[in-house]
Design a protein around this nucleic acid. Structure first.
Length: 688
RNA sequence: UGCGGGGUGGAGCAGUUGGUAGCUCGUUGGGCUCAUAACCCAAAGGUCGUCAGUUCGAGUCUGGCCCCCGCUACCA
């Protein structure tokens, strides 16, 4: 592949309904930032683009729940995320937002062009319309009685009581949650992207790296899990997807008669990359089209694995249909990062929040950048723990890098008052091999970054400091000074240059530290190529004082952070669901609750959660299917008396008819517990 | 369940086209003292999830099975 003229690098637009956590950073931002800083250091023309993703039903629902407007929600999180990114040193050229006027114009223009070209298929169907609120109702905005379990709290897409997926038309006695009125059926149209039409070229694009009959990229450079997931989608047959929604919050569909419709958030968000590029270009006297519409530009999307299909299939289809845009050259998606043995979860508040880290560890961005890069989930899921954080910071950053730089500064000041002496003589073998290793490591850093192997790159950058430590120990300048001052001067000069080289090699990863080192050296920061050209610090140059680069992380600090997580867990445990609406006694009496005995139990084949139980109700024996297999094995439950709802309408689950429901207590962690009687249990006892 | 990814010394990970199993951390022993109790050297430790197959030879290819993760389905 020839060198492109410019790079367009994007990070996934974070969704503006929660703060950022370390999983986000290690997934799609730190790696992108390292990549971009490297390219900039090489003097490349780069645009690094991101922004908040602020539309979609989840935000409107959240706003409704909290009694706020969607605007208030997104304003809050946009600011929070933008500041956290900036503080952490994620060096976006532009961090804009999808709720902006610029974005409305851009996404409407893209939509309009596709609409006019006939890239969409318009499908008309009957949908519920709220005449008071004057809008079509998204599935989630309709409640009614479930045709299956008769719960009156069913939503248009699903009954949460019985879990059955529904279509709004199946609901008995539907109601709008907006106005409470009874919605009427009205004809509506939606724009679908017929992805099946694109299967053939997508297959070539992903599988062979070919586009429009030409080589586009080397598919071997793409990660296995990215190609694998895409091909499995294509092989499974691409389905048409609606690109519009009936919602108020979003970009209005720019077509006459489409009132109350907005662009699907998944369409609107990636167009945000384009909008935000334009916003940046306009501010900086550049032309955004150079980046998006030129074969000489290279587009790279950094994302997490949950976004693969969208960035590799759906968005490319949009870009191609539009006609002028280039396609992603690579999508180096990362896997997920876990935290202390459990997956990170925003809703369960199980996370290390970036803004809290920045608060608790002021001025220590590089420590987290180092650790996150070291454990970046490049090929498989990885795990962050606070003890591992401590070990890596203390044993690697502080001991190997920080201490090396410090040794060199101390020796330079001690022997030469900080001024680089005259350099003479022929380097010894140890000096030569240190220089060779340092050079090799430096070049490996760049190569690894270009292949998106950030962990390897960081490790190679650290090898420069390792080589320096080795040279010092092998040559022992503190002894040599007495016998061979000329060699000592040469060695320390070499060490000093290795400090400068390490600062350059590490600058994409640890920009703050790199800056501190450069400042202490009192030199100009070296670009990538200046180091490759073997630029040296000149005789007569005086260096300054070095601050301690990395303080050790104490066990107390670790304990405090672990405690913080545990506390959140406790808070979570404390959260209980609110009391439901009052019902009358007659309604209660309709329930046939009783104690039954489990006679037999077996796992339902090919399922993870289901047990098939034979129970004795006292009146009859029957079969129920219960989703408890992850909490109880068949042996655990046989012979037990359990609480049972006997007059629930039967339902087939995985082909087995289930007549009734075993009642279980569930804690906030989702753990189930059998309910039974405290005194002697009699099979068939009623519960009142 | 279907699909995808992964299972390598105590921990975290590399292993390109098949040919003596590597790295970082940790552990043990030694050296050094300029340095942030740091640094350097050496050693111990793995039959590469499992079973079978292809091959002169497999962590690396083929097939079956087990386990973990993601999306997906079933937790009335």
């Amino acid at each position: 592949m020839s060198e492109p003229k410019r790079y367009l690098v994007t990070s996934a637009l974070p969704y503006a309904n929660g703060p950022l956590h370390i999983g986000h950073i290690g997934g799609a931002y730190l790696n992108a930032d390292i990549y971009v800083r490297y390219l900039r250091s090489k003097g490349k023309d780069v645009a690094f683009i991101c922004g908040s993703d602020e539309h979609g039903a989840a935000i409107t629902l959240r706003a409704k729940k909290e009694g706020k407007t969607p605007r208030e929600i997104v304003d809050y999180y946009h600011e929070l995320m933008k500041n956290a990114f900036a503080d952490f040193g994620i060096s976006f050229d532009e961090y804009h937002r999808t709720s902006s006027d610029e974005h409305r114009e851009m996404s409407q223009a893209v939509f309009k062009k596709l609409e006019e070209k006939g890239s969409f298929e318009v499908e008309t169907s009957q949908q519920y319309y709220d005449e008071e609120a004057k809008q079509f109702l998204a599935d989630r905005y309709i409640t009614g009685t479930c045709p299956n379990c008769s719960s009156d709290k069913a939503y248009g897409d699903q009954c949460e009581k019985c879990g059955r997926s529904l279509s709004p038309l199946e609901l008995i006695d539907p109601k709008s949650t907006l106005s409470g009125s009874k919605p009427v059926l009205k004809e509506t149209s939606h724009w679908y992207l017929p992805m099946a039409h694109h299967e053939s070229w997508i297959r070539d694009y992903i599988g062979k790296g070919e586009y429009q009959g030409k080589t586009h990229h080397d598919p071997k450079e793409w990660k296995a899990h990215v190609v694998g997931q895409c091909m499995s989608w294509v092989d499974g047959g691409l389905q048409s997807r609606a690109m519009t929604r009936d919602l108020e919050w979003g970009v209005p569909v720019p077509v006459a008669g489409a009132d109350g419709k907005v662009l699907y958030v998944w369409l609107d968000a990636p167009i945000g990359y384009i909008t935000n590029t334009k916003v940046w270009a306009d501010k900086n006297g550049k032309n955004w089209e150079d980046y998006w519409k030129s074969d000489e530009s290279r587009l790279i999307h950094f994302i997490g694995k949950d976004n693969i299909v969208f960035h590799c299939i759906i968005f490319p289809i949009i870009l191609k249909e539009h006609g002028d845009f280039i396609l992603p050259y690579n999508v180096p998606a990362n896997e997920f990062m876990n935290l202390e043995g459990d997956k990170i979860s925003t809703s369960r508040n199980w996370a290390v929040w970036l803004h809290e880290y920045l608060e608790d560890f002021k001025g220590r961005q590089d420590e987290m950048r180092y650790v996150l890069c070291s454990i970046m989930p490049e090929q498989k899921d990885s795990e962050f723990t606070w003890t591992d954080f401590r070990d890596r910071v203390n044993n690697e950053l502080a001991d190997i890098l920080g201490n090396y730089v410090n040794r060199v500064f101390v020796l330079m000041h001690k022997y030469y008052g900080g001024t680089v002496p005259e350099i003479n003589g022929t380097p010894s073998e140890a000096e030569q091999s240190a220089a060779t290793e340092s050079r090799r490591a430096y070049e490996s850093v760049g190569k690894a970054i270009e292949q998106f192997k950030f962990r390897e790159a960081l490790s190679e950058a650290m090898n420069i400091a390792r080589a320096g430590n080795k040279l010092l120990t092998e040559t022992e300048p503190w002894k040599l000074m007495k016998t061979d001052p000329q060699a000592t001067a040469r060695i320390l000069h070499a060490c000093l240059n290795m400090v400068a080289d390490a600062a350059a090699a590490l600058s994409p990863f640890l920009p703050f530290t790199s800056g501190k080192i450069v400042e202490a050296l009192q030199i100009k920061a070296r670009t990538w190529d200046e180091v490759t050209m073997n630029e040296q610090i000149a005789t007569g140059h005086t260096i300054g004082q070095l601050p301690i680069l990395f303080e050790k992380i104490t066990d107390e600090t670790v304990a405090a952070q672990v405690e913080k997580l545990a506390q959140r867990q406790a808070e979570n445990t404390a959260t209980v669901e609110p009391i439901k609406d009052t019902i009358d006694f007659e309604t209660f009496q309709k329930l046939d609750l009783r104690v039954v005995k489990v006679l037999a139990a077996e796992a339902v084949p090919k399922t993870k959660k289901l047990l098939k139980l034979t129970i004795d109700t006292g009146v009859d024996k029957r079969t129920v299917v219960s989703g408890i297999a992850e909490h109880y094995s068949p042996e655990d439950v046989v012979g037990k008396h359990v609480l049972f709802l006997a007059n629930l309408a039967p339902r087939a689950i995985k082909g087995v008819e289930s007549a009734g429901m075993i009642l279980m207590a569930e804690n906030p962690q989702g753990q189930l517990s059998i309910l039974s009687t405290e005194r002697e249990a009699i099979t068939g006892s009623t519960v009142k």
